[in-house]
Computed example of a mutant assay.
Amino acid sequence: MMYILLIVGFFFLIKGADYFVEGSAAIAHLLKVPTVVIGLTIVAMGTSAPEAAVSITAGLAGSNGLALSNVIGSNLFNLVLIVGVCAVIRPFIIDKNIMKRDFPVAILGSVILLFFIRDLYISRMEGLFLLSCMALYLIVTVISAIKNPVEMDMEDRPLPMHTSLIYIVLGLVGIILGGNLVVDNACAIAAAFGLSETLIGLTIVAVGTSLPELVTSITASKKGESGLALGNVVGSNIFNIMFILGLSTSIHPIAADPVALVDILILIVSTTLIYIFCRIRSKMGRFMGTACIVAYAAYAIYIILR
């Protein structure tokens, strides 16, 4: 029964995120916000909502290993596997604004997280600091969007404002309900098999909560919207660390598993290597995409065997 409830939970998470993204993106289009900014903010927040629901619920329930590993696992899945799959499907040019501002912020967020868990504990004050960083990042991004408005394509008319708001509310309800189901049943499965919450968080839960990012980025990549595809992934990773962990630990401090230090180091190295490659080449091609997919497969085998 717990397997069925886990799948039901993922369904509510994904459909909830889908409604939230559609409603939020429609409002953003009405406000003439650039596509890249939509990917970095509205879509990134919407597709990261499952991670938020799971990590915050897990933190409140005292499942610290699941709360932290879900964020780290999701970020690795987002950056390494999703970007790799998108590049294999359709190579894309890297948006310069993402490289100048957003990618470095994603790396900095991971470094700050590593510093915070050096003592295997994230306090409320550290959580509030992460939230402050998120607020500053959003302010800078929104100001940039206001200074560079774009004309909306009239053939791609968004939902009316009232319909968009209904979608957002329905999406949030689905996300919260799904988050509770996933956390409760993922912990039950881990206990039944004698597996650690950290392993479950890095694998099943991380992949499940990252499905919205995967679907959104692949769809955007097929349509040639590389700004939305990469922006969604980078924005989600920033949101996961600064907002989700920030809010989770502000509500309830989180104790980290020692292996989390290794996983965060892997995340920092992966993010930095992809950033350097993108700076040098200014393009993600199929070769680099394949390399990313292979690297993620190697990481998955490592965490299962360790």
Rank of each mutant, 00 (worst) to 15 (best):
M1Q: 09
M2F: 05
L6A: 10
I7W: 07
I7D: 09
F11M: 15
D18C: 08
D18M: 06
V21S: 15
S24K: 08
H29S: 09
L31R: 13
L31Q: 10
T47D: 05
A53T: 04
V54K: 02
S55Y: 04
L66F: 08
S69F: 03
V71Y: 06
S74N: 01
N78C: 09
N78Y: 04
L81H: 00
G84L: 09
I93Q: 11
I94V: 15
D95R: 06
D95Y: 01
I98W: 02
K100D: 11
S110C: 10
V111P: 01
I112L: 14
I112G: 03
R118G: 13
R118V: 08
L120S: 15
L120P: 02
S123P: 04
M125P: 04
E126C: 11
L128G: 10
A135R: 02
T141M: 13
I143W: 08
I143R: 12
S144R: 10
S144K: 11
K147M: 07
E151K: 12
R157Y: 09
I166G: 07
I166W: 10
I168V: 07
G174T: 07
I176H: 00
D184V: 11
N185Y: 01
A190T: 05
F193K: 12
G194M: 12
E197N: 11
I200C: 05
A206R: 02
P212C: 00
I218R: 00
I218S: 02
E225K: 13
E225S: 14
L228D: 03
L230W: 00
G231P: 04
S236R: 09
M242S: 12
F243R: 02
L247I: 09
H252I: 06
H252F: 06
A256K: 07
L261K: 11
D263W: 14
V269D: 11
V269K: 10
C278F: 14
C278H: 11
R279A: 14
M288W: 14
A291D: 04
C292P: 05
V294C: 08
Y296P: 05
Y299T: 15
Y299H: 14
Y302M: 15
